[in-house]
């Protein structure tokens, strides 16, 4: 096997649309958790609301994609307000419970057979993305070389990546300006001590709500990119369920919570490592280094998550602040 090839394909995977939409979900979580201290365990719910908000108007009502875009964002704002209203006055754990429950409830509702005309039921929705791909300016595959690395993406992928990464960069710019403002200072203060914020005449509840809405909208946009990249929305736990929330959190923690580039770096590293372990195990099997009785070909997908889980544990042990986090700040937690 050629280790450079494996690294190359891992890096190539790291730039794929999947990294972009996980980055967006993690950027949202960074605003929630990293800067405001809100525990949102239902980011996949926000992604699902965005994805279905985009797809339903096009699929069931023959609206344009722009209408879908507006619906998805509006729906995610409403979703955030509904979840925040009863919980943000309470202790932090209430939001965590309500978000994880609401995300699953939403997923089960859109799966319902009775709603098949609108949500596609358990089959999900396909064929809402043609408008998006008709606007694709790329006519053939797009590639570039970087030293020994050869990056090559289909026209379709390149188009989603252009849009997705464009939005990611916008999201980073937004976070930068918002967090380095007096507004961001209040968010960080809410994270440290809400009562101190209140005693200084600031409505902590309102700031938490704003944070929940904005982070949720980032999640929803991530969900839309996911929907467009796949050309379908599926109410499956892997796509828009707890697994997705876990991936976004893992990316955030790897990169560093409360750090500007943390979510993006973490997503890139996470997706690249997933691809790397996958290809590596497969080629090792092809070379006969790993016996098939140890890891069968159909178990590679699982094995790489095991390996990544161990890697995450090592990271938390030796660099708990994440790649971008500062050790000095981390030490303050004690």
């Amino acid at each position: 096997m050629d280790i450079l090839d494996i690294i190359g394909s891992a890096l190539k995977a790291g730039l794929r649309p999947e990294t972009a939409y996980i980055s967006l979900a993690a950027i949202g979580l960074n605003i929630h958790f990293g800067y405001t201290g809100l525990l949102n365990f239902g980011q996949a719910g926000f992604m699902a609301v965005g994805a279905y908000g985009l797809a339903i108007p096009v699929f069931a009502f023959e609206a344009s994609l722009w209408v879908g875009l507006a619906c998805g964002i509006t729906a995610s704002v409403i979703f955030a307000l509904l979840l925040g209203y009863p919980t943000l006055r309470l202790r932090a754990d209430y939001l965590a419970i309500v978000t994880i429950a609401a995300a699953e409830i939403f997923r089960f509702i859109v799966r319902a057979t009775g709603l098949r005309e609108i949500t596609g039921g358990s089959n999900g929705i396909n064929g809402f993305s043609s408008g998006f791909y008709e606007a694709n300016p790329y006519t053939s595959s797009v590639g570039f070389e970087l030293g020994f690395l050869d990056f090559n993406y289909t026209a379709r992928e390149a188009w989603v990546m252009t849009v997705g990464w464009g939005i990611v960069l916008t999201g980073i710019a937004f976070t930068y300006f918002a967090i380095n403002s007096p507004w961001g200072r209040v968010l960080k203060s809410v994270r440290e001590d809400e009562d101190a914020v209140r005693s200084l005449g600031k409505n902590a509840y309102s700031f938490k709500m704003q944070s929940l809405v904005i982070g949720g909208v980032f999640g929803a946009i991530g969900g839309m990119i996911l929907a467009l990249a796949q050309g379908s929305v599926q109410p499956s736990p892997v796509d828009l369920g707890p697994t997705r929330t876990f991936l976004a959190y893992a990316a955030l923690i790897i990169g560093g919570t409360g750090k500007l580039w943390g979510p993006v770096a973490g997503s890139f590293i996470f997706i690249s490592l997933l691809s790397f372990t996958d290809t590596f195990i497969r080629s090792a099997q092809a070379e006969g280094w790993i016996d098939e009785s140890f890891i069968a070909p159909n178990e590679v997908g699982i094995a790489r998550f095991v390996i990544l889980g161990i890697a995450l544990m090592l990271l938390m042990t030796f660099r708990p602040q994440g790649i971008f986090g500062s050790k000095r700040e981390m030490a303050l937690d004690v």
């Binding site: 200072r185 960080k188 203060s189 994270r191 440290e192 001590d193 009562d195 101190a196 914020v197 209140r198 005693s199 200084l200 005449g201 600031k202 409505n203 902590a204 700040e329 303050l332």
Partner: peptide
């Protein structure tokens, strides 16, 4: 509490509430 503080009544706490990571 924040409305009262806005009107000019500000308090400190016996157990201090400093914002550690600021």
């Amino acid at each position: 509490p924040h409305q009262m503080a806005k009107q000019g009544m500000v308090r400190t706490f016996q157990l201090t509430k400093s914002l550690s990571k600021l």
